[in-house]
């Protein structure tokens, strides 16, 4: 088996290069599935080894939030220690109950944390984000979602609380960002919470007296292992690399066949290249971070 036949069509039979044959494609699919299974197993066996290292700053998120509000002529929101506490309690609860949602599997609601931290709101809101690399990315993602933007640019809010907490979620090191907004001014007959997915939920008056006061975890912070592998960057790098190699070999194949003036009954290279180009664009433009 000649080395050249891996990259260019066979000079006599004009058969496709081995690296773009269907057998090779099958091998690539198998390797990528194996990689994903490997990540899942590693996350289960050694929690925290996989994940991303973020550089997100609480104060920067408040600055960026107020900068977006200023663009719309809105007054800034002021940092409130009780809302900071509520956001921190919410993030810690997501790690301890291992969930990614506005409502905990145990039934805890966003306002449980707000009321529990001693903030007597009449109108409040919550935005969540996870696994972003920078503070700017978080705020840009919230601004690009209509429901999160409504929260960020709501003129009723006066106070803000932010928590940026690292922990292990689903076996991977994760950075959770909880943004809570609120006001204690009377803006509606009943207290309302506006969660990031667009739901507006009325909170009954009795909940303010029945909810227990929550206190921040007195435990010493858990030691989170150093991330050794960023699965997103590994998958992104390998995916883009493979698409580039296949795209190049398909182009070489087209050029060589044209030069040789031969016709081969085969699949359409242009179709493969179109699909792969859109896939590459998705990889390049996509973000790992999620908002809720």
């Amino acid at each position: 088996m000649k080395l050249a036949n891996f990259f260019i069509p066979h000079k006599d039979t004009h058969k496709k290069a081995h690296l773009i044959s269907w057998e090779a494609l099958f091998f690539y699919v198998f390797i990528f599935i194996l990689l994903q299974v490997g990540f899942s197993v590693l996350g289960y066996v050694k929690p925290g080894i996989l994940g991303i290292e973020s550089s997100i700053n609480q104060q920067k998120i408040i600055e960026l939030t107020n900068s977006e509000r200023a663009k719309k002529g809105m007054p800034p929101v002021k940092e409130n220690s009780a809302l900071d506490q509520a956001a921190k309690l919410k993030a810690e609860n997501m790690f301890s109950e291992n969930y990614w949602a506005h409502f905990a599997p145990s039934g805890k609601t966003p306002w449980d944390f707000i009321i529990g931290s001693g903030y007597k709101f009449t109108f409040a809101g919550e935005n969540l984000a996870k696994n972003f690399y920078t503070s700017d990315d978080v705020v840009v993602a919230w601004m690009n979602s209509s429901t999160h933007r409504d929260n960020l640019l709501n003129s009723k809010y006066e106070d803000i609380g932010i928590a940026v907490v690292e922990g292990v979620l689903n076996g991977q090191k994760t950075t959770l960002i909880v943004q809570m907004f609120g006001t204690t001014n009377v803006v509606s007959p009943t207290a309302v919470v506006n969660v990031g997915n667009g739901d507006k939920i009325s909170v009954k008056a009795e909940e303010f007296s029945s909810k227990p006061q929550l206190v921040a975890s007195a435990q010493s912070p858990k030691i989170i292992p150093q991330v050794l592998i960023d699965p997103y960057q590994v998958s992104k790098g390998l995916g883009l690399g493979l698409l580039a190699v296949i795209g190049t070999l398909l182009t070489i194949d087209l050029i060589i066949l044209r030069k040789r003036g031969v016709f081969r009954l085969a699949s359409h290279h242009v179709a493969h290249m179109a699909l792969m180009s859109v896939t590459a664009a998705t990889i390049l433009s996509g973000h790992i971070g999620e908002i809720l």
Binding site: Q36, S235, G239, I283
Partner: peptide, 16 residues
Amino acid sequence: EYILTAALTLVIIMGL
């Protein structure tokens, strides 16, 4: 070949 190319793009995307 088409099915494998489609499968490859999907596994690459899902890996993200």
